[in-house]
C-alpha cells in the first residue's frame, strides 16, 4: 500500500505538470489551429526565470518568482504571436511547424546567452518542502503543490471554455471566424490573448517543477515531445482529452519504470501508437476534414 501511494503521488505529480504544459499547447491549437513547437521554450524560460528571480531563497520569494516568471513569459508569448505566429494562422501544417521550430531555435540561442549552458536548481519554500506520512508512506509535500496547481488549471480552463462567453468565442474562432468577426469580436486580439495564455501555462508548469528538476538547456526540446504526445493522445484542442492523456502518459511512464527500466521511456510512445491506431484523431478529438 505504501509503495502504491508513493508511486501514485509521483505519477499524479508528473502527469499534473505535463497536463499544465500540454493544456497551453492544446488551448492555442483549439483557438488558432496552430501547433507551436516553441511551446517548450516557454516552459524552459519559465523555469530559468524562476532560478534567476528566486535565487537561493527558500521562502516567499519563490512564490513571487513563480508569478513573475509566468507573466514575463506571457509577454514573450505575445511578442512571438505578433512577430511570427499570426502570419502562419491558417497556413499548411508544414509552414506552421517549420516557423515555430525556427522560433524554438532562436529562443534556445537567446536562452544560452541569458543563462549559459550549465544546469541550475532551486529550493522549494520551506513550508512545502519535506515529506508527510500517509498510510505508512513518506510522500513529498511539494507533489501536492503540483497536483493542486494542475487541478486548479484544469477546473479554471474547463469553466472558462464551456461556461463563459469568452470560451464560446474561442471555440467559434475556429468553427466560424467570419461570423465571429462580423459580430464585432476582434479576432487578432483574441488570438493574441489565447497565445499569451498558452505561453503563461507553459511557463507556470516550467516554474512550478523547478524544485524537483535540474534546470538546463535542452528541456525545451524534451518537454515539447511529451506534450505533443499528450495532446495527440487526448485529441488536439480538447482540454478534457489532455487531462486524460497526461494521466495515461504518466501511468505509462511509471509502469514502464517498474516493469523494465531499460524500456521504460518507450512505453509512452507505444501508448500513443496504440491510441492512434484505434482512433487516428485522438481520444477526444474530431476527425479532420
Amino acid at each position: 500500500m505504501a509503495r502504491f501511494l508513493t508511486e501514485a503521488i509521483g505519477t499524479l505529480s508528473d502527469a499534473g505538470s505535463l497536463f499544465v504544459v500540454a493544456a497551453g499547447l492544446t488551448l492555442v491549437f483549439g483557438a488558432m489551429r496552430v501547433i507551436n513547437l516553441a511551446h517548450g521554450s516557454f516552459y524552459m524560460y519559465g523555469a530559468f526565470l524562476v532560478t534567476t528571480i528566486a535565487g537561493t531563497s527558500s521562502g516567499l520569494r519563490f512564490w513571487v518568482a513563480l508569478g513573475l516568471a509566468a507573466v514575463v513569459v506571457a509577454l514573450l508569448g505575445a511578442v512571438v504571436q505578433l512577430g511570427v505566429v499570426r502570419f502562419v494562422v491558417g497556413k499548411e501544417p508544414l509552414t506552421q511547424l517549420v516557423a515555430t521550430f525556427a522560433v524554438l531555435y532562436i529562443l534556445a540561442d537567446i536562452g544560452l546567452h541569458l543563462w549559459g549552458s550549465g544546469a541550475r536548481s532551486v529550493n522549494a519554500p520551506l513550508a512545502v518542502s519535506g515529506t508527510f506520512t500517509l498510510a505508512g508512506a513518506y510522500l513529498p509535500v511539494y507533489d501536492l503543490v503540483i497536483i493542486g496547481l494542475a487541478i486548479l488549471v484544469g477546473v479554471v480552463l474547463w469553466l472558462l471554455l464551456s461556461h463563459t462567453s469568452l470560451g464560446w468565442m474561442i471555440r467559434a474562432a475556429v468553427d466560424d471566424p467570419e461570423l465571429l468577426q462580423a459580430g464585432g469580436v476582434n479576432l487578432r486580439r483574441l488570438h493574441l490573448g489565447v497565445f499569451a495564455a498558452g505561453a503563461l501555462l507553459a511557463a507556470l508548469a516550467g516554474a512550478v517543477v523547478t524544485p524537483q528538476i535540474s534546470v538546463a538547456p535542452g528541456m525545451d526540446q524534451s518537454i515539447i515531445v511529451s506534450s505533443l504526445l499528450v495532446v495527440v493522445i487526448g485529441g488536439l484542442g480538447s482540454i478534457v482529452g489532455t487531462a486524460f492523456a497526461a494521466l495515461i502518459i504518466g501511468i505509462a511512464d511509471t509502469v514502464g519504470t517498474l516493469v523494465d527500466p531499460t524500456w521504460a521511456s518507450t512505453f509512452m510512445y507505444f501508448a500513443v501508437i496504440i491510441v492512434l491506431v484505434v482512433r487516428p484523431w485522438g481520444l477526444f478529438g474530431t476527425p479532420e476534414r
Binding site: 501547433i35 504526445l229 495527440v232 531499460t262 501508437i273 487516428p280 479532420e288
Partner: peptide, 30 residues
C-alpha cells in the same frame, strides 16, 4: 501502415513520435 492511418498534422506528429521512439531505443538499449 500505422502512420498513414492519420492525416496531415496528426501524421506529422505521429512520425515525430516514431522518431523519438527510435531515439530512446537507441539510447537505452545500451
Amino acid at each position: 501502415m500505422i502512420a498513414l492511418r492519420t492525416r496531415r498534422l496528426y501524421f506529422a506528429l505521429l512520425t515525430l513520435a516514431l522518431s523519438q521512439l527510435a531515439y530512446v531505443i537507441a539510447e537505452n538499449q545500451t
